[in-house]
Nucleic acid binder design. Sequence first.
RNA 1: AGGUCCGUAGCUCAAGUGGCUAGAGCACCGGACUCCAAAUCCGGCGGUUGCGGGUUCGAGUCCUGCCGGACCUGCCA
Length: 325
Amino acid sequence: MEKERILSGMRPTGRLHLGNYLGALSNWVKLQDRYECFFMIADWHTLTDRTDTKGLKQDIKDVLIDWLCAGLNPEKSTLFVQSHVPEHAELHLLLSMITPIPWLERCPTYKEKLEMGQENNYGLLGYPVLQAADILIYKANKVPVGEDQVAHLELSREIARRFNHLYDHVFPEPAPLLSETVKILGLDGKKKMGKSYDNYISLSEEPRIIEEKTQGMFTDPKKIYLGDPGHPQECNVYSYHQIFGKFLGENLEQIFKDCKEGALACTTCKKNLAHLLINYLAPFRQKRKELEKESLDKILNKGKEIASRLATSTLREVKKAMQML
RNA sequence: AGGUCCGUAGCUCAAGUGGCUAGAGCACCGGACUCCAAAUCCGGCGGUUGCGGGUUCGAGUCCUGCCGGACCUGCCA
């Protein structure tokens, strides 16, 4: 029986951080064996809010390197850059003709971005249509998404349905693949980890920087003096211990108890965490060092080839269905 | 293409009819306080006022050209 197909993507934001890894990437790695996977670096999508394209190439490379460090395997999965397969754009154009604007205007992410003061450009409004094209051009059955992406995926399904109804049954409706992911808050303990909040730890972070950053983490505001009882269940540093502790065999119960009794100083607790993270990330740093020396064009070229073949074939079906061939 | 308005610190905005060294909040950095961090209190950094000309003793402010942006009208893609 044929494997189901998956498409997912990330925007080229440069080096990835723990949030990217725990929230999506580590899950992708697991999906590789069960599904036929297409993983895309969405450089076109990033243009909706990035006009400065200096450094974009490096950002793409950095994302790819981190993917490989995390365990994405180009022998198993197709890793490619969106703009290397221009068929996405052609399908996007065709789909845009059957997509009513109100469908796009009511997207929560779109409305949020506008409220944030982002420029209301054509590409931003059409973002979900391009996303639909990304998915449908590979006839992906499943799309691993976070909660925040469900609405956009719903739109892809509607567009697929509409196309199938108007022309011919070309597209399978892509279903969301919700998998349990680890949510990690940023170093500030307030917002989710994100590059733009500057509250992250990169997968490739230098040990010295990891020490500095963990030292600056937000802790329990009720624990002022050394010896004060802590509240580990509400402390962001403890939640990091919970996430990463198992990898180095930490005794979580002991930490919890010591913190609660005031026996564990936050400084010590943070030093331990830094040590933990440095060890946890050591393999990433090691792997990156090796990969940085290599040319990765081979991987991207292979990805482009496989993706293009499929994309071209789907696009031909689409145009046939529309009586354009 | 034409018309109206606008452009001041990284961000949001101040600077009566031209007039002292262009100010404040947020952000950032440092200090105090903490085992750290946060909160709070001090202190600091930060500007060729979009660019170039002009009028004037004196221009962020007035005139002009360009650049950039918002909105309106036309062009019936």
